[in-house]
Every structure is written in structure tokens, then in C-alpha cells.
């Protein structure tokens, strides 16, 4: 199990990757199999048979009711599976709000944008940070923070690394009144202005 902070680093595309990989391997197997069959690797008589084999057709006609019901059920299953994949891929990432003191009955709900704007503004005060973007990720039970920092060229990365945790994140934790806020920080050196040192 990965930690909430590790998971916060970036949106996971594991499902999409697994789907693409599985489909790719399946197509590869099918294609190679069909080509080998055509080249007569599984016997020359098999290679000369038609693609839509009369024997297969006869079996389908013998089992007509089962074949029809099976085909309709398979079609509906594929439809549901395909739509689920489409919606899962299109679903935007969830940005949870943070509930403070929810046990007392009159807790305060801090919206995700309010938190992230405050943290990003704080982070931009750190010397060497030219731009900061914060996002709340995860779910309501286990919110986490993703903080992307763009650094100016020649910035002391170690200094920023230390200071972000010492000041920005500590301040965020203190002002939100939580002991623990899983955070994934991403440091990026500015590539906007390309250096021409040749």
C-alpha cells in the first residue's frame, strides 16, 4: 500500500495503462495467431479453410437459442464495460474540502480552493520560487495536498526543499489545525526561458 502522500503526487493512470496494455497484448496475440494460422504453422489444411468456418456456423445453428441469447448478453456486457471505461477516463479529479472539528457538531468546512490559494500564495514567498500551485486531492476521509513549485534558474534546491516544509507546510498545518497533512511536493526548474550557453 502506498502512502497518501505518494498517491497525491500525480493522478493515477494505472487503470488506463492496464487497459491499453491488455488490449495491446490481446491484439498482438490475435494478429500473430491469425498470421501463423494463415502461413500453415498449425497445419496446411487448416490454412486453406475459410475464415468463417462452415463447421462453426453449423454449431451456431444447432445451438441457435443459446447463441442468440449469448450474443445479446455479451453485447450488453461490452456496452456497460465500454461506458464504464469512458466515464472513468473522463471523470475529473476530485478535490476534497477540509472539515475542521467535525466532531463538535458545528464544524467549519474549508473549501479546497480557499486552502490551496492560501498555501500557493505562502509558497510563492519562499525565495527562489517563481510560481506555486496547490491542489487538494484524495477523498474527504484522507485529504492530501499536491504542491507544485517552479523554481528560478540557479536556485538552491536544498534550501527550498527545507524551507517549504519548515514554513509553508507547517503554517498550513497550524492554520488548519491538523497535525497531519499528507503532501506531495513537486519541484520543477523553470524551463520557460531557455538558456543559450553553447
Amino acid at each position: 500500500m502506498t502512502s497518501p502522500a505518494t498517491r497525491a503526487a500525480a493522478r493515477s493512470y494505472g487503470g488506463e495503462r492496464a487497459l491499453t496494455m491488455t488490449t495491446g497484448l490481446l491484439l498482438l496475440l490475435l494478429g500473430v495467431g491469425a498470421a501463423l494460422l494463415g502461413y500453415g504453422v498449425f497445419g496446411q489444411d487448416r490454412a486453406t479453410r475459410p475464415v468463417l468456418d462452415p463447421e462453426v456456423l453449423r454449431t451456431l445453428v444447432d445451438w441457435q437459442l443459446a447463441a442468440r441469447v449469448g450474443a445479446i448478453v455479451l453485447g450488453l456486457l461490452l456496452l456497460v464495460l465500454g461506458l464504464r471505461i469512458v466515464f472513468a477516463t473522463l471523470r475529473p479529479e476530485h478535490h476534497p474540502d477540509l472539515a475542521l472539528n467535525p466532531t463538535r457538531g458545528h464544524g467549519v468546512l474549508v473549501t479546497a480552493t480557499a486552502i490551496t490559494e492560501a498555501i500557493a500564495t505562502d509558497a510563492e514567498q519562499v525565495p527562489g520560487v517563481s510560481k506555486a500551485r496547490a491542489t487538494m486531492v484524495g477523498d474527504e476521509d484522507e485529504p492530501a495536498l499536491r504542491l507544485s513549485l517552479w523554481l528560478e534558474d540557479g536556485t538552491d534546491v536544498k534550501q527550498v526543499w527545507r524551507e517549504v516544509d519548515d514554513t509553508v507546510l507547517r503554517q498550513a498545518r497550524e492554520s488548519l489545525g491538523v497535525d497531519h497533512l499528507p503532501t506531495a511536493v513537486r519541484l520543477e526548474l523553470n524551463t520557460a526561458e531557455r538558456q543559450r550557453v553553447r
Binding site: 487503470g15 488506463e16 487497459l19 491499453t20 488490449t23 450474443a71 445479446i72 455479451l74 453485447g75 450488453l76 456486457l77 461490452l78 456496452l79 456497460v80 464495460l81 465500454g82 461506458l83 464504464r84 471505461i85 469512458v86 472513468a88 477516463t89 473522463l90
Partner: peptide, 17 residues
């Protein structure tokens, strides 16, 4: 790609049924 695969699967399934 995964979006397109999902759409293709859904369309093929609907047509089959």
C-alpha cells in the same frame, strides 16, 4: 487511447446486441 477503446467497446457491444 483508453477513452477511444472504451467508446469502441461500447459501440461494438451495442451493435452486436
Amino acid at each position: 487511447l483508453s477513452l477511444l477503446l472504451g467508446l469502441a467497446l461500447a459501440a461494438a457491444g451495442a451493435l452486436l446486441a
